[in-house]
Computed example of a mutant assay.
Amino acid sequence: MPFCRHRCDYCAFATWTDRDALAARYLEACRRHAAALAPGLPPVTSAFVGGGTPSRVDPDALLAVLAELPLVDGAEVTVECNPEDLDDALATTYAAGGVTRASIGVQSTVPHVLAALGRRHPAEAVAPAVSAARRAGLAVSLDLIHGAAGETVDDWRRTVTDVVALAPDHVSAYALTVEAGTPLWDDVARHPSDDDQADKDEVVADLLEAAGYDWYEISSWARPGHRCRHNLLYWTMGDYVALGCAAHGHRDGVRYWHGRTPERYLAAIEGGTDPVAGSERLDPDARALEALQLSLRTRAGVPLSALPVDDREALAGIVEQVGDRLVLTRRGRLLANEVAVRLVAPQPTAP
């Protein structure tokens, strides 16, 4: 859902603040696309509505899109929400329409940090949004970002402590990244420090693990039974279908993506043509290596054979052996890319 009231300073996603007039047509196009795809889909175990700001669009029209999908009983259905949007009425509508999970963009609970990120919601909006989701029976995930200009370690500790007090089911805590074409990119003085972000990664790990959250992916922690099923599809190279502009999909070893703008998506769906703008098929060797690199990000880790013995010894303290797997240590999570470039995919057995 590519519609936003305001574009945050760090955001490089396909979002627009001047396209609201297209929203009704766009949602109908998504519904038509979902209906056309549905007969060829296996049972759908999860759906994730991201953005942009999904909580900004008409909820009934959004639910009509989801209703076209062959969702299994008990499917995980997530909608990303801004805190100021999620009240009792919206949460109840979502729950009645099959949504099971609200992913709320908190980022920080410290006002000057929110301002540095270009976020417009007040910190005080978060607790009422969580309460509304709870009353409607939705699982709650809270998204955080650390590394904004002027954010101290104590500011970050306060944010995480505030979030733990709200007892969400899931927490994603991301290091701020600087993307080309954003106001943040143009303002070098606001770029984050690697050392500062490493310190803050340690803080969030300490506080969440002490509160009973289980780390299961580089930036993700969950209470038992609340790992994000949809995101795990990405890390395990599962199949997922793209709906909407700039969406990406993966089916049968082929990755594909739609055109970036809502106008291009509307033109394709309303004109009866395929919205896919490009695709790629990885060869078996590249696919095997990518599967290892993605799995390395998770608690599942990689097989012992994925790292040569010399590299295992050199990476002591970065990876640890758990059964017949190698898993990143907490320190190793900060250096995951350094490990990933050393991974070796298994060679096919000669016939």
Rank of each mutant, 00 (worst) to 15 (best):
H250E: 05
V65F: 03
F13W: 13
W16C: 02
P308D: 13
A123I: 02
P224N: 09
W185H: 15
H33R: 13
E209S: 11
D214Y: 02
A14L: 04
R101F: 02
D155I: 06
T17P: 12
A89S: 12
P39F: 01
G97C: 12
A123V: 06
M237T: 14
G105K: 11
T273Y: 03
A136R: 10
R229Q: 11
L307Q: 10
W16H: 15
R264D: 10
R287K: 09
E28Q: 15
T15H: 09
L114D: 00
A314Y: 08
R135G: 06
Y234W: 14
V188L: 15
G253V: 02
C4M: 02
L266G: 02
L86H: 07
S295K: 06
A123T: 06
A173V: 08
T78G: 05
Q321K: 13
P111D: 13
L294G: 07
A136L: 08
V153D: 15
D285K: 05
A247T: 07
V110T: 14
S103G: 05
A180D: 15
T329K: 11
D199G: 12
L86I: 04
P59G: 04
V57G: 00
D285N: 06
R333D: 08
A75W: 09
A350P: 00
D310Q: 10
H146E: 03
L22I: 08
T177R: 14
A336T: 14
D143P: 11
T93N: 04
H250K: 08
C8Y: 07
Y10K: 05
R101I: 00
S46W: 11
E84K: 10
G323K: 12
S219A: 10
P128T: 05
Y216H: 12
A96C: 03
D85T: 09
Q197Y: 11
A102T: 07
R229F: 15
G301Y: 10
P122E: 14
W257Y: 13
P262F: 03
Y234L: 08
R330E: 13
R119S: 05
A211W: 01
V302S: 06
E202Y: 10
L307N: 06
V178Q: 10
V79N: 01
Y265M: 02
G238Y: 10
V322W: 04
A123S: 14
D285E: 13
A125I: 09
I269P: 00
D154C: 05
H121R: 09
V276A: 07
P128D: 03
A75D: 04
R325L: 06
H226S: 11
Y256D: 00
V99L: 10
V188M: 06
A340Y: 12
